[in-house]
Design a binder for these strands. Structure first.
Length: 632
DNA sequence: CTGATTGAG
DNA sequence: GATTCTCAATCAG
């Protein structure tokens, strides 16, 4: 078995320099000359390089920061909108250069680009006899768009620091064992150097363009996969770039120190602390370290302020007796662990990362809003906070999930449509561990959550955000909160988070691609669908419930659904039975155990519709639900 | 599917 | 391991 790295791609990793601080500097350029720190709650989340020069650090407490640097300018950065906007803008800027659309954002301030296609195209264009006067073509169809560059040199820094001597190139494959000769010849390496060189010039052009046109500087890494390009970029910052140059080497079973010296990848990655490898986080690095130091967990429990952990490097791990995918699997595997974690991790410490740079994404997979609190232990307070969070959430959904309607029919400006509909709503809290005087239980899990369907009314355009929020609070959030915290009192929360997840993109909704969605619809709403087919003529929804509550979306009934033969109405019971899910508006009632209690469902009680939040008598609810079934 | 965990910036 | 406010992937059940 020979483990091979695929070095056929050219991947560029972008990291915007002290991003949050740069956003403020762009808003107010006079800040550039000052030590600038961005504050969230009690800490400095980031600061510019002038502030770092004076001793400030990321994640420093405000207290210490002011002591260290009394004249630091501190700006509040809890509102993330400006960062999100800047991040999107830079992301789109970079995307505009790619041919493949392979542009992946990591957080707000990092982007991976797969530029293999641009590089290969330009490699074919090179004049081997006059490399120093080359032209990089940025558009396939227009040879005049691009930039001049010297293909005989790498742009920016390299690792190692001195590029190979073209007069006397080393061909490390020559010295590798016979088992490796099946691997493509060493001209692949020459080609790799060339392609990385092209990548380095493209990266430099992108950096310079971004600074000129957008006002943001960045530090960049260039290599053949996401892992290596990201790590390479760290070598020189800020406002710089680093290319990891060949030989990249070959990996084999009998991989050892000697082979390591032939590979710049090994030379490079070996020096990293095991926990600094992306994908090996706190837990995994801890498990690995414990094994390497052959020390049970209890030993470093004793270290209170123990920053004195011995460093365990990738090299220490790689060369440890019996180390390999199998041992790593036993070290890292177990309950909840990702399958294949052993070989995945073994690949990482050998510089192998075959994960693709993903296509630019139009919609996020989730949107969440959270806030933290010193003390939050009464329902009215919680409701107040939920109201604020839900308001932000709805606004964010409008900002991130809404698109200008370019339907030729809708000439009227301002028309919007949903790019995607989230299907589930989630509430999570972080309870503060109840302090125990007598030893009961101190087990403090971090976050707990409950989720449920997103009510359809949050997609409407016809109501104010406040009105939507109020319904959402009553119909979904408070009930969810009571599911999370069945006890009326006794909790104290340090965090609330509201989120929408499970996005279904509009294009694939109903018709066409969303086969999965249709299948689910039949499974779960079969009865409802049957009923409206039978009954819809009898009770025209619009006349009964003229109060509107239209889904803002252009909801269209799926062909398959319409074609489905109608069935008997014995399922009417299923609908009325559904009203037991209705949450009643009243609150603050509890039984003698201090558990939340729902009001009884007498006739004449008002109920709230799950879908639209309308309040109506219970007897009207069944017909009302039929109306919603029609709508969807 | 839900709810928890892990890892990333 | 925690601090802030997120986002994504992946697991068990």
């Amino acid at each position: 078995m020979t483990v091979m790295r695929n070095d056929q791609r050219i991947i560029i990793h972008f990291d915007y320099d002290c991003f949050y601080a740069s956003v403020f500097e762009n808003e107010d350029p006079s800040l550039k000359a000052l030590p600038l720190a961005v504050q969230q709650k009690q800490i400095i989340v980031t600061c510019n390089y002038e502030a770092r020069r004076r001793g400030l650090r990321k994640l420093q407490l405000i207290h210490e920061a002011k002591k260290t640097c009394p004249d630091v300018v501190i700006v509040l950065g809890e509102e993330l909108g400006r960062f999100r906007d800047a991040s999107k803008s830079l992301y789109k800027f970079l995307e505009s250069f790619t041919w493949s659309g392979k542009v992946e954002r990591l957080g707000f301030d990092e982007v991976f680009l797969d530029v293999t296609d641009l590089v290969e195209y330009n490699q074919a264009l090179l004049n081997c006899h006059d490399l120093s006067h080359s032209f990089f073509q940025l558009k396939r169809e227009d040879p005049t768009i691009g930039f001049s560059f010297n293909a005989a040199e790498i742009a920016g820094h390299t690792f190692p620091e001195h590029p190979p001597d073209p007069e006397n190139p080393s061909h490390p494959q020559d010295s590798l064992p016979r088992s490796c000769t099946a691997v493509p010849k060493y001209d692949i390496n020459d080609s790799l150097l060339l392609r990385l060189t092209l990548g380095s010039h493209l990266a430099q052009h992108l950096r310079w363009s971004m600074e000129e046109e957008k006002g943001y500087t960045s530090t960049v890494g260039i290599s053949t996969n996401k892992l290596l390009s990201k790590l390479a970029g760290n070598l020189h910052k800020p406002k710089a770039q680093t290319t990891l140059i060949p030989p990249y080497g070959i990996l084999a079973d009998d991989y050892n120190e000697t082979a390591g010296r032939e590979s710049n990848v090994t030379l490079f990655i070996d020096s990293h602390d095991i926990g600094k490898i992306p994908g090996i986080g706190f837990k995994m690095s801890h498990s690995i370290r414990n094994h390497i130091l052959s020390r049970p967990a209890e030993f470093d429990d004793g270290l209170i302020y123990g920053e004195t952990k011995e460093q365990v490097t990738v090299r220490d791990v790689r060369l440890f007796p019996n180390m390999g995918p199998e041992l790593l699997e036993t070290l890292l595997g177990g309950a909840g662990a990702e399958r294949g974690i052993g070989s995945k991790t073994w690949n990482l410490i050998n510089g192998i990362d075959d994960t693709e740079v993903r296509q630019m994404k139009r919609v996020p997979t989730q949107i969440s809003i959270e806030d933290s609190y010193m003390r939050l232990d009464t329902l009215p307070e919680v409701v107040k906070e939920l109201r604020m969070l839900a308001t932000s959430l709805i606004k964010r959904m409008h900002a991130d999930l809404l698109e200008d309607d370019e339907d030729p029919d809708a000439v009227g400006l301002g028309a919007k449509r949903w790019l995607a509909h989230p299907k589930t709503l989630r509430l999570t809290t972080r309870p503060r561990p109840p302090l125990n005087a007598d030893g009961t239980r101190t087990r403090s899990f971090n976050r707990i959550s409950r989720s449920g369907p997103v009510p359809n009314f949050i997609f409407t355009f016809k109501e104010s955000v406040d009105a939507i929020v109020e319904k959402l609070i009553q119909v979904a959030m408070i009930p969810m909160f009571k599911r999370l915290h069945p006890q009326q009192a006794g909790w104290n929360l340090s965090l609330l988070n509201v989120a929408v997840t499970n996005m279904v993109e509009a294009a694939s909704e109903g018709k066409g691609g969303g086969g999965r969605d249709i299948g689910r619809m039949f499974k779960r709403q079969e009865e409802v669908l049957k009923v409206w087919r039978v009954e819809d003529r009898d009770i025209p929804p619009d006349t009964v419930f003229h109060e509107d509550e239209h889904d803002g979306d252009t909801a269209q009934v799926d062909d398959a659904v319409q074609a489905e033969p109608s069935a008997g109405s014995e399922a009417l019971d299923a609908i009325t039975a559904g009203s037991e899910d209705m949450m009643i508006l009243t609150q603050n009632t509890a039984d003698e155990n201090g558990v939340w209690e729902e009001d009884e469902e007498d006739e004449g009680n008002m109920e709230v519709c799950h879908e639209c939040g309308s309040v109506m008598p219970a007897f009207a609810m069944a017909a009302h639900e039929r109306y919603h079934a029609l709508e969807n």
